[in-house]
Write a protein that binds this DNA or RNA. Structure first.
Lengths: 219, 219
DNA sequence: ACAGAATACGAACGTTCGTGCTATTTATTT
DNA sequence: AAATAAATAGCACGAACGTTCGTATTCTGT
């Protein structure tokens, strides 16, 4: 039953052309913002249509089902994340500089309030962490991907001789992610304005403590 | 308007006696479990009533409004948290042992799946972190309280001479909380079975690195 | 045992949810 | 300019939402 809905949604999306794709993009840009604040469940077709001054049915036709809308929103958020974090970080030289660039851009993404409700994926993670279904699966997949990107950055820093080779890369990735998560939490829920400064200091200290003498200086 | 609803809810609750209070407790015990998985918004009067084999109206009468139900659920979760984490930890001697007991019981609470959906307050935090209203305010208040408890535990450990006095207590509390948050995330979303073991190792190492020679040995 | 209060229920309310049809507008192609 | 296809709107649906109200049940104190 659901599978059918997906296929319909995908087919509809696939057949679209310029104009349709542009409105679709406009919808998703707004949807990401809305979902970051109200959650992917709180992202309702009605409110979305109203805010974009479209009809429910006109908007709905772009996706074919709510689940497909959620998936598309998650996908859009992933692209923004890659655009604003992963890509710029790859501009930095391999090793410690790139590792730090990743952390830095990541924290900046939320600090600069690119998403109205803070970190899209932190919210989505905790919202869907005990549900079943394709949306959960996709979110988990993207998060695994991100942790892997972080882990690889650590590995590369080790290969470059910037980081102590005895360090467990995946564990360090876990720590980095956890500190960022803590910062999002403190900033968003407790309105702690120093949360990101603090996270940066903690992470800088951490990275310095495992840096070799061959590592380029951290900021 | 909402204020009225609250007052009605409170009054209704206040007038209750034994039987009423017992069913109310039964409702809340179930509600905490449900909300930890489906969120405080996903906690609907209908589903709650169905699962408890009660009528919607009969259940609803205990609270007077959905918001009051959410508040009561948050309060119940807080009591469980205190019962299972704070209280047992206070059983341990002041200083490093108590600090570790706090961390340990906290992680155990989620590990043992006391709440079906993982850590109630992590989920609630990210669900309500960009909303306004009394529920958000209460959650934020409780979380501040918890961070303060952690901070005080660090302070006491410093006073007891177990922890380097140069350590910034509130920053350490932030780090501890972040690592726990990261563990909940990895365990619940990514199904990482080693998440809590890893968090324990990270935190043990962290605490050992700031422990004085006067500190009792950590596990 | 009876009165009165406390507790629970059933039915209904107005809304909003996701979703399906059919028509109408807008763009592209011939 | 007509024909065709794509994009949006209009309207209606059944289900579920929070909430209200009148009524029945169950308990408590006398």
């Amino acid at each position: 039953m659901l599978k059918t809905a997906h296929r319909v949604g995908r087919d509809v999306a696939a057949r679209r052309q310029d104009r349709g794709l542009r409105t679709r993009e406009a919808i998703l840009a707004w949807a990401v913002d809305l979902a970051s604040a109200d959650g992917l469940e709180g992202l309702t077709v009605g409110s979305l249509a109203e805010q974009l001054k479209m009809s429910k049915s006109g908007l709905f036709a772009h996706f074919g089902s709510k689940e497909e809308l959620q998936l598309a929103t998650v996908e859009k958020a992933r692209l923004i994340f890659i655009e604003k974090v992963t890509k710029p970080a790859i501009g930095a030289p391999k090793g410690m500089p790139r590792l730090w660039a990743m952390v830095d851009h990541w924290l900046a993404l939320v600090e600069k309030r690119v998403f109205r409700g803070g970190c899209f994926f932190s919210a989505a993670s905790f919202e869907f962490d005990s549900r079943k279904g394709v949306v959960h699966d996709r979110i988990a997949e993207i998060m695994r991907e991100w942790i892997e990107v972080l882990t690889r950055a650590v590995n590369e820093a080790q290969k470059a001789g910037h980081v102590d080779p005895k360090i467990d890369a995946s564990r360090l990735a876990f720590e980095i992610h956890a500190i960022a998560l803590g910062a999002h939490w403190a900033y968003q829920l407790l309105d702690d304005r120093r949360a990101y400064l603090r996270a940066r200091m903690i992470l800088l200290e951490k990275l310095r403590s495992i840096a070799t003498s061959a590592s380029p200086r951290l900021p």
